[in-house]
């Protein structure tokens, strides 16, 4: 038994010196957060070099000192529009995530109730999730009409299952823990046990999931915009920008699509990194 334990690297405690220091762990959380905050701040506060919606006569100009990321076929400055889009895409994804977080956590806690309903909720989610979520989002927006509110609602709906699932599965574990038994033993009521003992012990993993949900939502919003059924085409959006530049890719004007693509990539990367770090630090806290 001891031999197998020693051979398995995951069960061996890492030597002290190799543990990431607190400072470095902070960095892993604050660098991506800082990048995202910088993107939002730039979108709202920074003076843009050009109007992000105003066509210039200089169409499809290559990136240079004048237009850092060139211009598109309408003559709109790509850099300005890219920055402005951050102020649309990221808040939309955040809003959609927040709604799904609240709804999902409440549903997840409700699904913890003993009896047949918890199991039924999970079965229903299975059916729901078997459906391709992007297709579902497209269908929802197409049904409800494409305006910003409906995009947010669609984002919220497709993200609810992941929170319900997470909260239920975590809750099932935590509910069996000794401290929950202790809470019952001191006479705590059901709601008190839920909100003081069960829920606080899964905040870390919920936040990690939330960050992942935002990353996913960014991609969905971009997809909807790319298909032209998301946000109103006049509003700045990375997906719409990629779409605008798509025809020019074949003729060599790569910058119109590639830069918004990179912006999506960077944003998703940041949210994923935050999620990873949250999950890691949560795991460490749990082991302690």
């Amino acid at each position: 038994m001891t031999e197998t334990l020693a051979a398995d690297p995951t069960t061996v405690t890492a030597p002290k010196g190799r543990k990431p220091r607190r400072g470095r762990r902070r960095l892993r959380l604050w660098v991506p957060s800082g990048i995202l905050a910088g993107m939002l701040a730039a979108a709202y506060l920074a003076p843009l070099p050009y109007d992000p919606a105003e066509p210039l006569p200089d169409t499809l100009a290559a990136p240079d000192g004048e237009h850092w990321m060139g211009t598109d076929k309408f003559g709109i400055d790509v850099f300005s529009r890219l920055v402005a889009s951050a102020g649309v895409d990221i808040p939309l994804a955040l809003a959609g995530m927040l709604i799904s977080l609240v709804v999902g956590v409440l549903l997840g806690l409700a699904a913890l109730h003993r009896g047949p309903w918890g199991e039924r909720v999970v079965r229903a989610l299975d059916v729901f999730q078997a459906f391709p979520l992007l297709v579902l989002a497209i269908a929802l927006v197409a049904l409800m009409g494409n305006n910003i509110e409906n995009v947010v609602v669609a984002i919220a709906i497709i993200n609810v299952p992941r929170f319900v699932r997470l909260v239920r599965s975590e809750g099932l574990t935590i509910r069996e823990s000794r401290y929950v038994e202790a809470a019952h033993a001191i006479g705590a009521t059901g709601p008190r046990v839920m909100f003081r003992h069960v829920l606080p012990n899964m905040t870390g993993i919920i936040l990690a999931q939330a960050s992942l949900a935002v990353a996913h939502s960014i991609v969905v919003i971009a997809s909807l915009s790319f298909l032209g059924i998301g946000i109103n085409a006049a509003d700045a959006s990375w997906g719409a920008m990629i779409q605008t530049g798509a025809q020019n890719m074949t003729t060599g004007q790569w910058w119109v699509s590639v830069f918004p693509g990179l912006a999506i990539f960077l944003t998703v990367l940041c949210f994923n990194a935050i999620s990873d770090e949250l999950q890691d630090s949560f795991g460490r806290a749990r082991q302690r």
Binding site: S177, R178, Y179, E181, A182, A183, A185, I186, R196, H197, P200, N201, T203, A285, R286, R288
Partner: peptide, 15 residues
Amino acid sequence: QIIFQEPFESLNPRM
């Protein structure tokens, strides 16, 4: 009241 065998497990780590 009750006092448990596992002192750490019986205390809510977030409180």
